[in-house]
Amino acid sequence: MNQSADNIKVYIIIPFHNLVDDAFADCLKNQDYRNLSLILVDDGSTDESLSKLTSLPYTCHVINGDGNLWFGGALDKAYTFIEKNNSVNDHDIILVLLHDTQFGGNFISRGAELIKQYPNSIITARAVSKQTGMLVDKGVHVSWWNLSFTQTDQTSEINCLSMRGMFATAKDFIRIGGFYPVLLPHYLSDYEFCIRAFQMGYMLRTFEELIIYSDESRTGYHSISGRSFIKTAASMFSKKYALNPIYRTNFILLCCPLRWKLINILRVWIVSIKIIIKSLVGIRHNKKATLK
């Protein structure tokens, strides 16, 4: 059944743990699309983040965590809520927003138009860094033969997307399925979902007119070089580390074609072992320098 734009509700999933600022709340408040419902996954915030969002003039559904949900767990909680909510219609729209982003007043209306114009698609906004003004995220092409991730704006090349401003119909979102909060608690949980969508036959798209501004200073860490052996080992297996070898192994097991699984798992662990060895060598060099 076709629905007019006014009848299509946009359910906005917002995972957060503190640090929701006024600028993000203002972006939501100033949207020209008003039929919005917020799914607020508050993972144990201790500041005023929740009240900033519940004070907005929209229906709010609050899902509470204890600080251990992380991104993947928060998305899975929101997915379960949507799947079990009988008031969600097939043609309603799901939007995932990160609380460290900002966007224009027509961002949601434009995304809703695009998802209606391109059925059987997952659409993600292109991200621009607030700090540098540079484009930092668009479509992604994963080359499994060498486990590389390349940014691309060519729809024919995109087989992966982030969820930093992702739009999908509720029907498609539910059909693609939930998340894996134990196997992928934080990094790569959104990549896995979108790769799964691609493998199910959905088109993954980005558009230059759909822009979101991201605070790159709030991301986790992507490098652990220069640390002591103990700190290197602890950081390597932290959920905040983007290259955590355990979660990258899980990602490969879930997503990678069979012919490339073993070689890519070996790649992940070889890189990790090299980092640990480098930290040990650094300790020995420092001790020698001290003795001299």
Rank of each mutant, 00 (worst) to 15 (best):
D100G: 04
D100V: 05
D100Y: 12
Q102L: 12
F103D: 05
F103N: 13
F103P: 04
F103L: 11
G104S: 15
G104E: 15
G105R: 14
G105T: 11
N106S: 15
N106T: 15
N106F: 07
F107L: 05
I108G: 00
S109C: 06
R110A: 02
R110E: 13
G111N: 04
A112I: 04
E113S: 14
E113I: 07
L114R: 01
L114W: 00
I115P: 06
Q117D: 06
Y118T: 04
Y118P: 03
N120L: 07
S121D: 07
S121W: 07
S121E: 09
I122T: 14
I122H: 09
I123G: 02
I123T: 01
I123N: 02
T124V: 06
T124D: 04
A125K: 14
A125W: 09
R126G: 07
V128S: 03
V128N: 01
S129I: 05
S129R: 06
K130C: 01
K130M: 14
T132D: 00
T132I: 01
T132H: 00
T132P: 05
G133A: 01
G133I: 00
G133P: 00
M134H: 12
M134N: 10
L135H: 04
L135G: 02
L135A: 01
D137R: 12
K138A: 14
K138Y: 05
K138P: 03
G139R: 01
G139V: 06
G139H: 03
V140E: 06
V140T: 07
H141P: 07
H141S: 11
V142E: 10
V142K: 09
V142H: 10
V142C: 10
V142L: 09
S143I: 08
S143N: 14
S143V: 05
W144V: 04
W144A: 07
W144T: 03
W145D: 11
N146S: 04
L147R: 11
L147M: 13
L147C: 05
S148Q: 13
S148V: 05
F149W: 12
T150C: 13
Q151V: 06
D153P: 10
D153I: 11
Q154T: 09
Q154I: 10
Q154K: 15
T155Y: 05
T155H: 08
S156L: 12
S156I: 13
E157Q: 13
I158H: 02
I158Q: 00
I158Y: 06
N159Q: 12
N159R: 14
C160L: 05
L161I: 08
L161H: 01
S162I: 05
M163P: 00
M163D: 09
R164V: 13
R164Y: 11
G165M: 07
G165K: 10
G165W: 11
M166A: 11
F167S: 00
F167P: 01
A168R: 00
A168S: 12
A168I: 00
T169V: 09
T169A: 10
T169L: 11
A170W: 07
K171S: 08
K171R: 09
D172E: 09
F173W: 01
F173Q: 03
F173R: 02
